[in-house]
Write a protein that binds this DNA or RNA. Sequence first.
RNA 1: GGGCGGCUAGCUCAGUUGGUUAGAGCGUCACAUUGACAUUGUGAAGGUCAGAGGUUCGACUCCUCUGUCGCCCACCA
Length: 923
Amino acid sequence: MSRFEELPKAYDASSVEDDIYAAWEASGVFDPDKLPERNQKGAPYCIVMPPPNRTGTLHMGHAAMLAIEDVMIRFERMRGKKTLWIPGTDHAAIATQVKVEQLLMKEGMKDPRKELGREKFLERVMQFADDSANTIRKQVRKMGSSCDWTREKYTLDEERSRAVNEMFKRMYDDKIIERGYRVVNWDPQFQTTLSDDEVLTKETTAKLLTFTYDKDFPITISTTRPETKFGDTAVAVHPTDKRYKDLVGKTLTANFCGKQIKVKIIADEAVDPEFGTGALGVTPAHSMIDADIAVRHDLPTVQVIGKDGKMTGDAGPAFSGLTVIEARQKVEKMLGDAGLLKSVVEIPQNLPVAERGGAPVEQLPMRQWFIRVNKKFALRQDTLGRWKKGDEATLKELMTYAVESGQINIVPDQFKKTYFHWINNLRDWCISRQIWFGHQIPVWYKKKVAESHPSLRREGTGEGRNEATGEDLQTEMMVSDTSLGEGWERDPDTLDTWFSSGLWTFSTLGWPDKKAFDSMKEFHPTAVLETGYDILFFWVARMILMSTYALGEVPFKDIYLHGLVRDEQGRKMSKSLGNVLDPLDLIPKYGTDAVRLSLLMGTTPGQDMKLSEAKVEGFRNFTNKLWNISRFILLQIGGDGVGAHGCAPIEINNIKSKTLADEWILASLDETVASVTQKIEKYEFSSAGEELRDFTWSDLADWYLEIAKIEKGKEQILSHILESILKLWHPFMPFVTEHIWKTAGFENNLIISEWPNQSEGFDKLSLEKLTLIKKFEIFIALITDMRRLRAEQGIEPVKFVEFSITSDEEIKNLINSNLEVIKQLARASDIRCELTPDGWVTAMSGTATIGLNVAGAVDIEKEKAKMQKELAELEPYIKSTKAKLKNKEFASKAPAKVIEGMKAKLEEAEGKKKAIEERLGKM
RNA sequence: GGGCGGCUAGCUCAGUUGGUUAGAGCGUCACAUUGACAUUGUGAAGGUCAGAGGUUCGACUCCUCUGUCGCCCACCA
C-alpha cells in the first residue's frame, strides 16, 4: 500500500497555489543574489516588468504579459542563469488623475481640483494610487510571477524622481530639452497639453464652408473651422497656381465678420491646388501645419481660441467669450447673411480627440517644454558602437540605429517597419503637462530680472506673461531639483508620464546613483522587453531614446510584442460590452496554471488572441491530466516515491533490461527536450507547449503508460520521465508541477531545479524506427493482456477473434511472419492482424483499452468498404507520384532528399495497396 | 491618403529559407467504460489553403492584381 493511493483523483488548484507561492517567495529564489551557487556563476538575465498603471486592477492583457515573462524567467533560472525580474507600477499621471477626478465627481464634487486645492487633491490621488498598487501586487502574485519583490519600483518614488531630474538636467544642458512657444495639442476638458501620441482621431462629418473674408477680398477659401479665421495672417496658394499668380506677395486687409485682419498672400508647396479653391487660409495659432508654413514665411501668430475653449479678445468683441461651436455657427450665419458664403458641403472629417476623456483637442500656441528629436548634440559617451564621445548625433539617429544595426531585435519582425515609419514621422515631443499628478518639472523661475528674452516673444498673443504660471517673460530660469531659495518659484507643470517610463530599464537598476553601478553593469542592457504592441511608440521607442542618449547603449536586446487579448468574437474587452474576462474570476475557478496556458498556447507574437472561458476550461482539463499522469506514475513506483536523481541526466545505459519501448520513450523524451528548449529560446512558446503536450499526452500517457501497466520494473524510467516533464512544464504551469514535485518526494524546489539536458552519447535508433517497434510491443503486450484477462477473470475481450496463440513464442512468430504487413499497418496508426483463418478482422490499435474496445463485432462489409475507400485514395496518389518521379526535369532539379523521401513513401503506399488487395481477396 | 497585418477544417490557430498525400486543439458524429484520469479512451467525418494571373520541374509558401476584415499613421484646409 503506497501513500500515493490517497492522492485525490482531481487536482485542486485553489487549495495549493497560495502556499506554494508563499514558499517560493520565502525561500528567496526570486532574488538573484539568493539563488543557488550555479546561478551565481551563470550569465545575468534581466527583465524589467512593464509597470501596470496604478489606475485600478489588472486585466487579461497584464495576465498575458505576466505569463509570458514568467515563462522566460523560470526557463532561464532553471537553465542556471542569474535571473532578475523587477516588478513595479506606473503612476500613469494623467490617466490616474482623470480617474480620481471622475471618482470625486461621482462623490458629488463639481470641480475637485478647485475644491480641494493642489495638496489635498494630490493626497487623494496618491491614496488611490497606493490602493491600486496593493491590488496589483496581489494579482501579480496570483499569476505566479516569480519576480523579485525586494526590488519593486514605482515610477513616482524618490529614486525614480532623482533619475527623472538628472535626465532632465542633462538634456537641458545638451539643449535637447527646450522651452518653446509652439502650437501644441490642448485638451480643454482637462486643461493640459498632450503629446501627439495621446491624440486620437474620431471619424465625424463636418461642414466645409467656402467663402471670402469680405466682399472685396479677391480670393475664395474653404475651411471646416471658420471660427479660427479671425486668426488668419496669410492666404497660401501653390507656387505654380496661375489663378493667384498676381496676388502673391501682396498684403491685403479684410473685414472678417467685424474684425480687421491683415493677410499676406504667399506661395507654398504644402498647398494642394486641387483641393477646394486651391487657396488656404493660414491660421498659424491653431494648426501645426499652418504653424510650419508661418515659420517658413515669417508670419505673425494671432491666437483667437483660449485655453478654456472659448474665443479670445482677438476674435473681436462680437465673438469674444463664445465657445468654439457657438462662434462657428455665428460665423456661418454672418457670412451667409452677408452673401459671402459660396457653398456649404458636408464632408467626412477626422476630428482630433483626447485619448483620455475624448474631448476634441484644440491646437493652441503655448510656451511648453519639448524634447527636440532632430537637434544635433554632442554625445556624452561612446554610443552604440558607432559614435565616439563628443560626436554629434540626433535622438532620431540614435533611435533608428539601435534597431537598424540589429542591436535590438524585434519579435515579430514586421514591427520593425512600423517602428521606422514612426521614427521618420516623429516630431518634437511636448513633455510638459498642466496636471498635478506626476514629476514636477525641476525648473525654477525668478521674477523681475532685468534681462528680457526676446527669443520667446511672439506677436499677437497677449505676450509678456505666461498665462499658466503668471510668470513674466523677464524671468530667470534655473534647472534644479531643490529649492533655490527666496524669490524662486518652481514650474507648476509636471512631465509626461512616458518621460519617467522611458528611463525604466535603468532607473529601476538605480541609475544615476553611483552605488548602483555594479548592478547596472550586470543587468543592463536587459535581456528582453516583453509588452503589448500597442505601446511600441508610447513606451518602447522612448526607452530606446532615453537609454541610447543617457547610457550610449540599448535598453534591451530583444523586444517581444504580444497581441491584445480579445473576446471570443475578436472584440476588445470592455466594461460597456460586458465581455470582460477577469483573471481574478478565472483563477479560482480553473487555477492559475490553466489561465496561463490559455494565454500562452495558440497565440503568436504580435497577433491578437481570442480568449474564451471554454479555452481556459480545456487547459484546466489538461492540468488535471498531468496530475493524473503523475499520480499514476507514483502509484506504479509505489513506496515512498521517487528518489532524488539530482540534476544529472539519467544514465540510460545503466538501466538494466531496457525494452524497445523504453528506448523509444527515452529517445522521444530526448527529442522533446531539445525541441522545447530551442523553441522557448526562439520565443515560440505556443509551439513549445504543443510539442510538450504531444509528448505528454500522446507518447507518454497513451502509449508508454499503457505498456507500463503490463511490463513491470519501469520505476526508474518512469521516475526519470516524471522528473523531466515536471521540469519542462514548470515554466508554463508552475503551480501544479511544483505541487507534484513535492508530493512525489523530489528534493528541493522545482523552481530552482536544473533544466533537463539532452543526453549525449546515447546510441538512439531513429525515432521512426522506434515508433514502429513500440507499436509491436504494444501489440504483444495487448495480446498478452487479453489472454491474461481471459485466463484469470474469464473476460472475453474480443468476441469474434479466435486466438489460437498459446505461447510467447507463437506471438513472436506471428509478428515475424507478418512483419511487413504490420510495418505498413503500423504506419497507418492502426495495427490489424490476421489472426483467424476466416479472413481479416480487427485485432487492436492504440492503447490497452482498445483490447476491450474491440468487444463489438467488426462488420465485415464495413471493413470491406473501408478498405476499398482506402484503395481508391491510394491509387491516384501512386499514379501521380510515379509520374512525378519519371519527370526528367523534376528528377534533375529536385534535391535528392526529396526524391528519396517520395520514393520511400511511394513504396510504402504500394505495399499498403498490395496488402489491402490481398486482404480483400480473402474476404 | 500612406503603411502594416489577417483571410488555411464548423470554431481558435500552426505551417520554419518553395519540395514527400496540408497539421493541432476545440466542436461534431460513432463506439467504448471494473483499469491513473468521465476534467476519460479509440476512431471517423470535415480543407480546389479568400479569388485571379504570373515565375518554377514543383506554390499555402515567391511576384502582380482584386476582394474582404482589422490595425497604425496622416488636421485636403
